[in-house]
Design a protein around this nucleic acid. Sequence first.
DNA 1: ACCTGAACACCGTTCAAGT
DNA 2: ACCTGAACACCGTTCAAGT
Lengths: 247, 247
Amino acid sequence: MPMPTSDRPARRSAGRPANSTITREAIVNVALDQLDRVGAHAFSVRDVARSLDVYPSTIYWHVESKEALLAEVASLVMTGAIPPRGSGDWKTWLRSLFKRYRKAVLKHPNVAQLLGAQLVSNASLSIDLIEGVISVLLEAGATEANLREAYNCVISAMTGFMTMELAPMPLDDPKGWAAALEGRVRSIDPLEHPTLTRHLHLLANKAFILRWQNGSQVPLTSSFNAHVEIFLAGLEVFLSQENDSVD
Amino acid sequence: MPMPTSDRPARRSAGRPANSTITREAIVNVALDQLDRVGAHAFSVRDVARSLDVYPSTIYWHVESKEALLAEVASLVMTGAIPPRGSGDWKTWLRSLFKRYRKAVLKHPNVAQLLGAQLVSNASLSIDLIEGVISVLLEAGATEANLREAYNCVISAMTGFMTMELAPMPLDDPKGWAAALEGRVRSIDPLEHPTLTRHLHLLANKAFILRWQNGSQVPLTSSFNAHVEIFLAGLEVFLSQENDSVD
DNA sequence: ACCTGAACACCGTTCAAGT
DNA sequence: ACCTGAACACCGTTCAAGT
């Protein structure tokens, strides 16, 4: 059957509709819903069209590609994640940035895959974020010689951890796969890997590579917080290193 | 035409072949080639089958799924990236780990997408890596109270930066997209974003969000090195914090 | 045991045609 | 301007059937 959905009774005829509900904004909202439900891998523009009860080609009148749609979705999730300036020193501002980013992404865990590994980030992360990071780094003592490096490290610190934390589990057979990994983890040879064996109880299902559930089911909050503090402490050391010629 | 390839003259008939060239290993090697050429997004098991001049279903006799195949490819790239124990102190070992990881991934940039954002990492990163990281962290002074956090930060520091650095550019229209971003970057309003404008020359095409080529075309080596040093310095601070009860 | 060949249930995207 | 309807060129995966 050629209908987008089989149970919807009223079929819209061609031409400009009286009630123009199919806006770009509506498409993006539905797309975010889809992404939340099925993940980036199973996300399809045909499903978005089905939810809106239109043909797939309709989507392409409002949006240029699947990629552009996902970029828009990602930037929707990111709105409001940048802290205002003037709230404390550089460490406070960066800490606030990281925490706001985490909060925003945890509301829609599947966007982490977009922000980290697809260059969607280029379109989704705002110019204001960049301006804020640079200002704060200069305030922290960054120079022409190390500003670029410090900036790149801030952006990667912001996104990197959560990209891994929220990486998707294998799609099919989630139960069997989890059981298999759990079995593999629990049957590690104590003779070959004594240290791992001794500390496995601390790590099982709460550490990268050794877990069978991802961050949306088992958040790694304390590790993320450690990650932030490690980065801030390290950045301070890094920025104070080449300052022998300044003072 | 039903043939997998149209130009190959000799078509294999069904049944067990005399020269059994289609091994699991051969499939993984061809898959790595494919991944290097087309990227994770365009990678298809049908293309792998075409390269081997067999039907797609043949692949599925040797390998359980596309996902499992990519996991195998990733772990192939990772072999040998773990430094041997006993070479210096914990900082030296971790630095060596990060540099080896970078070297291995740069040889096959498209696996970065697999290692970072898909949970392929679970299958691809080895148990030996875990054992090494834990040992070295204990040597560095990690306790039961912070081992898990430190471990998670090491793994994320290893993969996070490069996942972003090697994130794929938009597939279609790469030239137009690059020009568009370049234009957008160069036309930033100096009044609204004065700091960014002043330092844009340092960042253009060499910084996250502000670049139009990815890490395989424009490597961010100095930033990665800074990232490593920032992490190591920060980790040292982190591990020495709760040690007031020890000495 | 290992492969063919066909089929199933999907995709993203394009484009003429309608109103 | 905005949508239909059909089509194109693909996918991953399954499964009976061959040898």
